[in-house]
Nucleic acid binder design. Structure first.
Lengths: 215, 215
DNA sequence: TGGCGTATATTCGTACACGAATAGTCGCAT
DNA sequence: ATGCGACTATTCGTGTACGAATATACGCCA
C-alpha cells in the first residue's frame, strides 16, 4: 500500500514537535509558538490549530491524555504524542529537509503575467517593491546581529537567516530587473504596443516561438 | 467601506489575464496555461479552475458570453472579462508587484524545528537536499540558456530567472549551513544531548534566553 | 469493426482553512 | 462595586481547494 501522505498543514508538524517536548493543551501550544517566534515561520491560526489537532488524533499521531479544569475556566484537553506520532514527526521532518517541494510564491505569478501592466507602471511598482524589501532586509539583519550578540545559540535562528538569504536574493533580482527595463530592455516598444493592440499580440508572440519557452 | 480583498487563489489572476486577451472557455484556459508554461508558476488544478471562475462571476469580474456546442461534445461556456474585472486585474497585479506578501515555505518550517532531528542525521539530509538543488539549478540554467539562444523575448522568461535566483540563494545557504555544522557549530554537544534528555532541555534553553530570539 | 488509449470538458463530494462568535476570568481604574 | 479591556480557551459556520468520477469524441492498429 502507498504510504499515507503527511498532513498538509505544517502547523500539524509544529504540534507534533511541541508534544515531543512534553504533553500540553492546544492553547498552550499556540502561546509557546508565539513566544518562540515560530509563528514567523509557521502560519498560526487558532481555528486551524484545533482542526489539525483533531486530524492528528484521527490518524493516531497524538492522543488526549486528560481533561483538566482549573477553577471555573473552560475545560482543557491535554494531549500527548504517541509512538506512531514520533515516527511520523521524524519521517515528515526528514522528507521536508531532504526533498525540496515545489512552491508557488505570489510574486512569481505576478512576474509571469507582467506584460498585462504597461512597462512604465511596472517599473514604478518594482521600485516600490525594492524599497520595501530593503527595509525588510535591514530589519532582519539587525535582529540577527542583536540576538547573536546576546549569544543566543545559532541553532535557534537558522530559520531567520534562511529568510534573510532569500530576501536578499530577491532584492538583488528586483534591482537588476529594474536596471534592465530602464536600459530599454528587449522588446520594450513591443511591450508598450500590447496595450494598444491587445487582442492578438500576446497570442501571436507565443505562437511565433512555438507555444512558449522551454517546450 | 474597506475595499473587498482580492480572491485568494492566484489562479483567478491568471484567468483574468487570459480573458483580458480574449474570451474563451475554462478548458481552453487550462490548455493555454500549460502550453505557455504558466503552470510552473501558478498552480493549476482543473477542479480549482472551475471554482475560481464561479467566484469571479459572482464578484462581477467576468461574465458568461455564450454557451456553444461543437458536434456532440459537452456544452462549453465562453466567458469574457468585464470592465470591473479589468480594474481588478490591474489593481491586483499592482499590489502583487509593489507589496511583498509574507509566505511560509515548508523548508523554513522544517529549519525552525530542526533540533528535533539528531545533528548527524540532519547533516545527512541536508547533503541530500543540496544535491537535489544543484540538479534543479543546473536544469533551470540550461533551459534559460537554450531559450534565450532562440531569441525568445526575455520578458517572457523573467519568472524563470526569478525562480533560479531564489534557488541559487537556497543552494548557497544550505551549503554554508552544512559547512557550519561540520565545523562543530555552536552547541553541537548540547544538540546531541537533547535526544537523550528531551524532556526539559529545549524549554530550559528558551527560558534561559527570555523566550527566544527577537523579543 | 471493435477495442483501447488519449484528448476534450465539466461536475461532485469531501476535507481543510480560518474568521468570527462564544464564554468565562482577571486585574484595575473610576 | 462596577464597568471594561485584555487574557484564557474553544466551537462553529462558511467558503475554498482539489482529487476523483463522469461522459463523450477521436485516432489508430490489430
Amino acid at each position: 500500500m502507498a504510504p499515507r501522505p503527511h498532513p498538509s498543514n505544517p502547523l500539524a508538524l509544529a504540534v507534533l514537535a511541541l508534544l515531543f517536548e512534553r504533553p500540553m493543551h492546544p492553547y498552550e501550544m499556540g502561546v509557546l509558538l508565539k513566544q518562540r517566534h515560530k509563528e514567523d515561520s509557521i502560519k498560526l491560526r487558532y481555528g486551524s490549530l484545533y482542526t489539525v489537532i483533531e486530524l492528528l488524533v484521527a490518524r493516531g499521531f497524538i492522543a488526549a491524555k486528560e481533561t483538566a479544569r482549573e477553577g471555573k475556566r473552560p475545560e482543557r484537553t491535554i494531549y500527548e504524542i504517541t509512538p506512531v506520532g514520533r515516527d511520523e514527526l521524524h519521517d515528515w521532518m526528514a522528507d521536508l529537509v531532504a526533498e525540496p517541494v515545489k512552491e508557488f510564491p505570489q510574486f512569481e505569478a505576478a512576474l509571469c503575467l507582467l506584460p498585462v501592466l504597461p512597462p512604465d507602471e511596472a517599473l514604478a511598482l518594482l521600485r516600490q517593491r525594492l524599497k520595501r524589501i530593503e527595509q525588510s532586509t535591514a530589519v532582519l539583519a539587525g535582529q540577527i546581529a542583536g540576538v547573536s550578540a546576546q549569544n543566543f545559540p545559532g541553532l535557534f535562528l537558522v530559520e531567520t537567516e534562511y529568510r534573510l538569504a532569500l530576501l536578499k536574493a530577491e532584492q538583488v533580482f528586483v534591482a537588476e530587473l529594474i536596471r534592465r527595463i530602464e536600459n530599454g530592455w528587449g522588446p520594450l516598444d513591443l511591450w508598450r504596443g500590447l496595450h494598444h493592440d491587445r487582442e492578438a499580440t500576446i497570442a501571436k508572440l507565443y505562437e511565433q516561438y512555438g507555444g512558449g519557452p522551454m517546450k
